[in-house]
Design a binder for these strands. Structure first.
Lengths: 230, 230
DNA sequence: TGCCAAAGTGGCAGTCTCTGTCATATAATT
DNA sequence: AATTATATGACAGAGACTGCCACTTTGGCA
């Protein structure tokens, strides 16, 4: 791999890596980078909503955001990523969950707490709230965005699993840990979807409540899971 | 949409639709089609294993399979699909699960039974067994294949959910049903992954047993899920 | 303050994926 | 055997993405 490639990789959003909590000095460079990330993402959302993903070209997005196509690809690896990468504050959730796990918290609680905090923060910020809703709607209606979202989710789960192994030592039941992370992530995604659906219908809904409902529903069924099958 | 597009769609594997159980007369045409599907898939597996997905072009696969690039795309919509589409006998599982659900079986049991039957059939057919192993290994090591697999999985879950709603009427708890299907599908996938890992290490493992272990493990944790969070 | 190295940007060429179209060939139907 | 429905390959063309290079901007640092 060439040096150029390495540098590019460092600066391309391959999954989700907005350093939300890093309170570094952040010079002009970093500030502009974030602004551009945001602008490009907004342009993508806008165009996807208006014309659909397939009808929207990278050139369209780049032009709307006022950058060249070449530069677009330095910010997002695909047009789908422009919408999916920072999709809700995933970066924050991951950081908190990993931190909690490394601090010795039970894995399920660590991840669930991190999500709960995000839910609350979303409720507190009307702007993020609205943006998240638009993104979820898009992801629901556009298969290519869903595909990208699921891939990102899988990547996050692997990170979490790695963190858990790292924190708890190799004695941990990796398989079950991975399964639990997956179930929680999935449930969260379904909760967001349902939330988007309800808001769409005019009802006002809370992601948190939907998640808890879903959780309870799963629990009811799961009580039988320790029984043998057949 | 033009007529050509419609026809093409009918004949392109967009997810997984090998009509495994259709005992129709099956003329020469259909037989050849299946042979080609298989050959192309084999070529893809072979080349992906040898050179990796990104290093393998559609032209490479097409040439190896002895068809033109244009024809390749009439069989599979992307090079990833050539490996992921018929990935284990998903078609069979889906058909059986949907049939059972329409016949009034409980949704969880319907899907789990269908998977169990596939596990057993895999154990009974060394060839399919081996092929499945190669595919799972590839999917594990190649992110683009994983992405495709997850997207296919999501598509299947929607089909199942639709079948459940259709069979049980709109009174059903769609949200929970979708969640249960997702959890089962996910668990199955993780079981296959673990199975591939173990076989890799020389241990001989059974997907069925791993699935049941995982199921029990989840059940143990899930007993607490009906308790309120915090 | 002024200079230098590091980093960001745009343009261009080139590869690869994927689709529409059409002429040709092969199976299915009657 | 004649007709029709499908499959195939070749070609053209759009769009996604990458490497490369010239040029500009930013962030220290003397």
């Amino acid at each position: 791999m060439t040096e150029t490639a390495t540098l590019a990789a460092r600066y391309t959003i391959s999954m989700n890596q907005l350093p939300v909590l890093t309170a570094a000095p952040m010079g002009l460079r970093e500030r502009r980078r974030r602004d551009t990330l945001r602008e490009v993402s907004n342009a993508a959302i806008e165009l996807f909503e208006r014309n659909g993903v397939t009808e929207t070209t990278v050139d369209d997005i780049a032009e709307t955001a006022g950058i060249s196509q070449r530069t677009f690809f330095r910010y997002y690896s695909t047009k789908e990523q422009a919408v999916c990468a920072c999709d809700v504050g995933l970066g924050t959730v991951m950081e908190r969950a990993v931190a909690a796990i490394r601090a010795g918290a039970p894995v399920v609680a660590a991840l669930e707490d991190a999500w709960m905090r995000l839910f609350d923060e979303l409720d507190a910020s009307p702007e993020e709230h609205r943006r998240t809703l638009r993104v979820r709607r898009l992801v629901q209606s556009e298969p290519t965005l869903l595909a990208r979202t699921l891939a990102n989710e899988a990547e996050r789960i692997e990170e979490l699993t790695a963190a858990a192994v790292d924190a708890a030592g190799p004695g941990i039941d990796v398989l079950t840990a991975r399964a639990l992370f997956t179930v929680i992530s999935t449930t969260t995604r379904l909760a967001f979807d349902e939330w988007a659906r309800r808001v769409e219908k005019g009802a006002d809904a809370s992601v948190r409540d939907i998640y808890l409902d879903l959780r309870r529903g799963l629990g009811t069924y799961a009580k039988h899971l320790t029984d043998d099958l057949r």
